[in-house]
Computed example of a mutant assay.
Amino acid sequence: MPPQHPLLPADVTVLERSWLSANNILLTDAHETVLVDSGYCTDAAQTVALVEQALDGRPLTRLLNTHLHSDHCGGNAALQARWPQVRTTIPPGQFAAVRDWDEARLSYEATGQQCPRFRADDELLPDGTVLLAGRPWQVHAAPGHDNDAVLLFQAGTRVLISGDALWQNGFGVVFPELDHIPGFAQVGATLDLIEQLQPAVVIPGHGPVFDDVDTALAIARRRLAGFVADPQRHARHAAKVLLKYKLIEWQHIALPDALAWLAGTPYFVRLHDEHFADHGLHDWSLALVQELAQAGAARLEDGVLHDS
């Protein structure tokens, strides 16, 4: 296991994952073991193995999710199968959707992503405190990327678990805006909240742990201002992110199959129809593929699209 960031306490272990899976954060004391976020389902066996290795024979007693996008909770079912008694806590707003397993409300159907069914035992309520592995963590609403998301802040150590509200070089796609629900202002308010909390170190949902919080906030605010000024730019960015994410899962796929997947994925079709209808769906999809390749985020060889 790689060395941890020097500002993290010894009882906080970060398992940094690839961009397909959210980082896993393990909190432990003598009485409790807690995992925050569980990655994507295709990495679930690796997630279980990594947690087993880190726990060294101890059971996992609690599982939390910062939000319910598939790359943050896709390993929940596998962890529940491995440790059936684990208590699973999710953010508010989607408890009924998980209970009824409504994949439309949970976004998996629209984005063409997978998430094995899991159970939720209770909700992680904002504006309160939750005791995790012997330390009190503040729970704050973190709307924007997902309007039901939360972040966790430990005031004593000034450690922030930010989910996709803040990365070292930005933040997650603002999905509410794509559903005609205000999201940009919520992103700004969440960034203001993070600044007010004054964390010493941030554990993001993706990418490395970082401590230059002021620089990360400045980068995020510049990106947000660009999206506010040009919502179509955000829509195109979202389309490319969703395609890139699926490509990470595929690793490689015949170009016609990739284009067929795009044409059959509701989010892509809606983004095209609402923002890019002056181009045919096939031509627009092909342009997205070519832009990913030109940016070095994909590779197209002999009619096969590869992840890079």
Score class of each variant (00 low, 15 high):
residue 145 H to P: 01
residue 155 A to H: 01
residue 229 A to E: 15
residue 76 N to Q: 09
residue 210 F to Q: 09
residue 296 G to A: 12
residue 25 I to W: 12
residue 142 A to D: 03
residue 207 G to S: 06
residue 291 E to R: 10
residue 304 V to G: 10
residue 122 D to M: 10
residue 193 L to C: 08
residue 103 E to D: 13
residue 306 H to I: 00
residue 96 A to V: 11
residue 55 L to F: 02
residue 57 G to T: 13
residue 134 G to V: 03
residue 102 D to S: 05
residue 140 H to A: 09
residue 247 L to D: 10
residue 203 I to H: 01
residue 244 K to A: 13
residue 157 T to H: 13
residue 223 R to Y: 03
residue 158 R to P: 00
residue 285 S to Q: 11
residue 24 N to K: 10
residue 21 S to W: 03
residue 121 D to H: 00
residue 257 D to H: 09
residue 176 P to V: 01
residue 217 L to K: 07
residue 297 A to V: 00
residue 195 E to R: 15
residue 54 A to V: 11
residue 302 D to L: 09
residue 77 A to G: 09
residue 219 I to R: 12
residue 145 H to N: 05
residue 24 N to H: 13
residue 140 H to L: 15
residue 190 T to I: 08
residue 198 Q to D: 10
residue 278 D to G: 06
residue 76 N to L: 04
residue 269 V to E: 07
residue 284 W to S: 03
residue 27 L to C: 12
residue 11 D to S: 14
residue 48 V to N: 10
residue 33 T to D: 00
residue 41 C to N: 06
residue 171 F to I: 05
residue 40 Y to E: 06
residue 189 A to S: 11
residue 265 T to N: 08
residue 164 D to P: 04
residue 15 L to A: 12
residue 102 D to E: 06
residue 281 L to Y: 07
residue 263 A to Q: 14
residue 134 G to I: 02
residue 297 A to G: 06
residue 31 H to C: 12
residue 127 D to T: 06
residue 227 F to G: 00
residue 272 H to M: 11
residue 63 L to K: 09
